[in-house]
C-alpha cells in the first residue's frame, strides 16, 4: 500500500498554517467592523430616505449582492491602481501604486461586500424597535442621535446578533479568497506549503480543520453573548449585585 495520504502530516502542518492566522483574523475583524459601520450608515440613509444618497445606496447594494465576491476582489485589485494613476495624471501628483499594501484591496472589497449585506440586516433590526420606546425617549427630550445610541441600537443589536454572527462566519471564510490580491493568509500559505512537498490534500485538510475550529469558536462566542444579553439572565445578575451593562 503506497503512502498516498499522510495523516501525521495533516497535524504537523497545522502550526505552520497557524502562523498566518493573524492575517486571517485581521482581515475578518477590520472588514467586519468597517462593514458594520458602513452598513449602519446605509441602513439609516435608506430608512430616512435621504435624496440622492438613497438611490446611490440602492444601486450599490444591488450591485454588490449581484456580483461574486471573487469578482469584487479582482475589480478592487485591478481598479484602485487605475484610479490612482488617473488621480496622479490630473493632479500632477506622484503617488506610487506599489506603495499601497495589497491587503488594502482585500479589506476594501470585503468591507464593502459586508456593508451591503449587513445594511439589510441592520435596517430590519432598527425597524423592529417599536415606535413607543422611541417616542418615550423623544418625550424625555433626547436628540435623534441620543435616541439612536441609547435606545434603538441596544435593542436592535439583540435582534440582529444571531444574523450578524452568521455574517461574521461567512466573512471569516471569505478571507480565504484574499490570495487573488496576492495577500498571503492561511489558504495561500496552504498552497505554498503543498507546492513544496506536493502533499496538497493533507495541506487542505489541515486548512479545513482550522477554519472549522474557528467557526465553532465564533459560534460559541455568539451563543455566550446571546446568553449574556438575555433579559432574565441580566436581571438575575443585577439582583445578585454584579452590575453589568450599567
Amino acid at each position: 500500500m503506497p503512502n498516498l495520504f499522510d495523516v501525521g502530516l495533516v497535524f504537523t502542518l497545522i502550526p505552520q498554517l497557524l502562523k498566518y492566522l493573524p492575517v486571517t483574523l485581521e482581515l475578518t475583524a477590520i472588514s467586519m467592523l468597517a462593514g458594520l459601520l458602513l452598513g449602519l450608515l446605509l441602513a439609516i440613509i435608506r430608512m430616512k430616505r435621504i435624496p440622492v444618497l438613497v438611490q446611490l445606496s440602492t444601486v450599490f447594494i444591488s450591485f454588490t449582492r449581484g456580483t461574486p465576491i471573487l469578482v469584487q476582489l479582482y475589480m478592487s485589485y485591478a481598479g484602485i491602481p487605475l484610479l490612482l494613476k488617473y488621480y496622479n495624471y490630473y493632479h500632477d501628483t506622484g503617488y506610487n501604486v506599489n506603495s499601497i499594501p495589497s491587503i488594502f484591496y482585500v479589506l476594501l472589497a470585503l468591507s464593502l461586500n459586508e456593508a451591503a449585506y449587513s445594511s439589510e440586516v441592520i435596517r430590519a433590526a432598527l425597524q423592529s424597535v417599536d415606535k413607543g420606546q422611541i417616542e418615550a425617549a423623544q418625550s424625555l427630550g433626547m436628540t435623534y442621535g441620543q435616541v439612536l445610541r441609547r435606545i434603538i441600537l441596544p435593542e436592535a443589536f439583540v435582534v440582529a446578533l444571531p444574523t450578524l454572527g452568521n455574517a461574521l462566519i461567512g466573512l471569516m471564510k471569505g478571507t480565504s479568497l484574499a490570495f487573488v490580491c496576492s495577500v498571503v493568509e492561511m489558504t495561500a500559505q496552504s498552497r505554498i506549503l503543498a507546492g513544496n512537498n506536493l502533499r496538497f490534500f493533507e495541506s487542505y485538510c489541515s486548512l479545513a480543520l482550522i477554519y472549522w475550529g474557528l467557526t465553532i469558536l465564533i459560534e460559541r462566542v455568539i451563543a455566550y453573548l446571546e446568553k449574556r444579553l438575555d433579559i432574565d439572565f441580566r436581571s438575575m445578575r443585577k439582583r445578585k449585585g454584579d452590575v453589568i451593562f450599567d
Binding site: 413607543g132 420606546q133 417616542e135 418615550a136 418625550s139 427630550g141 435606545i151 435593542e155 433579559i231
Partner: peptide
C-alpha cells in the same frame, strides 16, 4: 422642540418602557 419636551413628561397608554433597561 427639545426645550419643550424637557419641560414636559408623558405617560403613555402602552407604558413604552425601555425594554433593554431595568
Amino acid at each position: 422642540t427639545l426645550e419643550l419636551r424637557k419641560s414636559t413628561a408623558m405617560v403613555f397608554q402602552q407604558f413604552n418602557l425601555f425594554r433593554q433597561k431595568t
